[in-house]
């Protein structure tokens, strides 16, 4: 069976590569989990993180992933604590987005302090990424996104509510 995968990068189709190579590219951050991939048998291109078999990272060792850990393994070879084999895909190598401009625009346009929280997380994304803490940078990136989104949604909801109220008042007074 053909182990030929194609992936989209920069708007272009690249490949074929094996599934192992494709996983590696995702883990290394060469392509992002949202990138479109295709292999024989798939009707359309799909985002890599929605494809079963790609959604989990490659096994930690080069041995067969099905083989159980040999008994009596010295503790030095055990996986470090917290290194679960089912961690979400991470883009090590590529800097995660820091949502800096979104946070600034939310602060200015929606006049809400959530944007400032977003900017503080954006600073954390940069400092952690530049310090080599990629997992921390990704966590900060997720938080920056969350707070800028909260700010944006609150801003829109409040504006729509007040605008609606003003119309109701205007109609009632006329």
């Amino acid at each position: 069976m053909a182990d030929q995968w194609y992936y989209a990068h920069g708007g272009q189709q690249l490949g074929p590569v094996t599934i192992a190579e494709l996983r590696q590219k995702i883990v290394w951050g060469e392509i992002q989990p949202q990138a479109l991939v295709w292999t024989e048998g798939m009707a359309t291109w799909q985002a890599a993180h929605t494809v079963a078999g790609l959604a989990t990272p490659a096994p930690q060792t080069t041995q067969s992933p099905q083989s159980p850990q040999p008994p009596g393994m010295p503790p030095a070879y055990a996986a470090p604590p917290g290194a679960s084999p089912y961690q979400p895909l991470s883009y090590q190598g590529a800097a995660p987005p820091n949502y800096l401009v979104q946070s600034i625009l939310v602060t200015i346009c929606c006049c809400l302090p959530f944007g400032i929280v977003g900017i503080v997380y954006a600073a954390q994304v940069n400092s952690k990424f530049q310090g080599g803490d990629h997992a921390g940078a990704q966590l900060a990136s997720a938080n920056a996104k969350r707070w800028s989104m909260i700010g944006l949604i609150c801003g829109i909801v409040i504006n729509v509510l007040v605008f609606g109220l003003q119309i109701v008042v205007a109609v009632a007074n006329s």
């Binding site: 800097a95 987005p97 800096l100 954390q124 994304v125 940069n126």
Partner: peptide, 12 residues
């Protein structure tokens, strides 16, 4: 492209 960010390399 997957939308990314060009501001990640600004000094913290």
């Amino acid at each position: 492209d997957v939308v990314s960010n060009c501001f990640t390399h600004i000094p913290p």
